[in-house]
């Protein structure tokens, strides 16, 4: 370890990103080298100052109160729901236990929904950009299964692009839509084998609203930063049970 190497590893060292052995080498060098000791200590002290100064920025009390009030109102709602008849509650509880048991016993099936969320977040850009017709032409040549354009376009809802991909091993088409300036993704794929009948469900994953529903032999997963109400307007099919 010489002074130049130390300078290169300075950030990694202070960020705690080095393995014990490398850390040891740095510390040995620093013990014997006045200049490097000054560098490491100076930088460490400056970071402490920066951290201390900026940590004093706090959320206003009103924000703490608002978020807490929201949490409380949801909690009251959850508690009130326990007021159901006991026998019913017991039956419900046994179903819940059964549900957990099934989840625990079977090996994890491939999860295209998680893949769809990841694809939406990555926003890696469509292979084809354009209107309905252009997307259709592209997919006729490239889709790995017999696809169908998933949503009926209307005022304020446009298809703007698509790409062919795999979601955790399952072939899929990702459609990109624009709803009044907001982009969302619809992933379309054949039902994963062994998944049984897919029933419509509305989820929230990592902050996104996610709707999964069957549509004429295929499954569609919509992912977007959209309120539930808007999702239900866009895909009423997901709620027709």
């Amino acid at each position: 370890m010489d002074c130049n190497t130390l300078a290169r590893y300075l950030d990694l060292y202070l960020d705690g990103e080095l393995a014990a052995e490398e850390r040891g080498e740095i510390e040995t060098h620093v013990r014997g080298c006045e200049a490097c000791r000054r560098l490491v200590q100076g930088e460490a002290r400056f970071r402490a100052v920066l951290r201390q100064q900026l940590l004093s920025v706090r959320a206003p009390g009103s924000l703490h109160r608002q978020v807490r009030e929201h949490l409380e109102s949801r909690r009251r709602f959850a508690r009130a729901s326990w007021g159901m008849p006991l026998a019913y509650a017991a039956a419900v509880a046994s179903v819940a236990v059964l549900g957990y048991a099934v989840v625990a016993t079977y090996p994890k099936a491939p999860d295209p929904v998680a893949g769809a969320v990841a694809a939406h977040v990555a926003a890696s850009g469509p292979e084809v950009s354009g209107d309905r017709q252009q997307v259709d032409t592209f997919l006729k040549a490239n889709a790995p299964f017999s696809y169908r354009l998933p949503l009926q376009e209307r005022e304020g809802l446009r298809l703007v692009g698509a790409r062919v991909t795999r979601l955790n091993g399952i072939p899929a088409v990702l459609y990109q839509y624009d709803a009044g300036g907001r982009r969302f993704t619809v992933a379309q794929y054949p039902p994963p084998t062994g998944s049984g009948e897919v029933s419509p469900r509305l989820d929230h994953r990592d902050g996104y609203t996610v709707a999964t529903y069957p549509d004429q032999g295929l499954v569609q997963t919509l992912v977007g930063d959209l309120p539930e109400g808007e999702v239900s307007r866009i895909v009423p099919a997901a709620w027709s049970r």
């Binding site: 949490l71 909690r75 959850a78 159901m84 509880a93 179903v95 819940a96 549900g99 469900r201």
Partner: peptide
Amino acid sequence: MGTWSFGRRARQRNRF
């Protein structure tokens, strides 16, 4: 989402 999930939800709020 089924009614059975309310207990789970309450636990989740506490964890949150």
